[in-house]
Amino acid sequence: MTASECDRLAAEITHAFLGRLPEVRRLLSLDVQAALDGDPAAEHTDETIFCYPGVMAIMVHRLAHELYRLDVPLLPRIMSEYAHSITGIDIHPGAEVGESFFIDHGTGVVIGETTVIGKHCKVYQGVTIGAKSFPKDARGRLIRGVKRHPTLGDYVTVYASATILGGDTVIGEGCVISGGVFLTRSVPPGHIVRAIGPELVVRTNPEANGFESHASGI
């Protein structure tokens, strides 16, 4: 590519990106509404725009994703890692995220490059939508460009610290993935997945003399 071709291409990409801003705004408006609808602690959409890291992260993601789709080198990653640094939410700009998406709390969320997320999905803090071990070619180099991350259908909710891995893992429409689940296989639509919890042992604290009466209502 010659210097003049680079110049022409840069102008075309800039024009194409700016032309997408009305659509990005439409999607963000739905995301903001999803944040209000998804969190009873939110009292107004203004609060979600000013305060919510999930709204900030999806805003930067939707912008970076447009540049990613236009095959712009490096810029989308710099943008998404900036959002990561200020929100704790790591969304690769290649991830395809449907409308009305809400990340609640957000810290520790990871969404990989080839993830596909449907409409009206909700994700909580600590969720990983990631890859299993990376496939390599005959020379031992990582194979790039294959789908490595899961697909979530519409209306999927993933609760805190769940981990969903693999490019052939598909979470069907309307599924709920409970907190702490580790999932590497597909789930049919309309199912709830939960892990069997560890056995809990509750015993008296010998150093907390006098607290037993306060705890009697527990």
Partner: peptide, 21 residues
């Protein structure tokens, strides 16, 4: 905003394309 943004975005995209080249 769009006017200023277009200039800077063009600069950065152009730089990134040259960088990749």
């Amino acid at each position: 905003s769009i006017g200023g943004l277009a200039v800077e975005l063009h600069n950065q995209v152009l730089t990134a394309l040259h960088y990749a080249r």
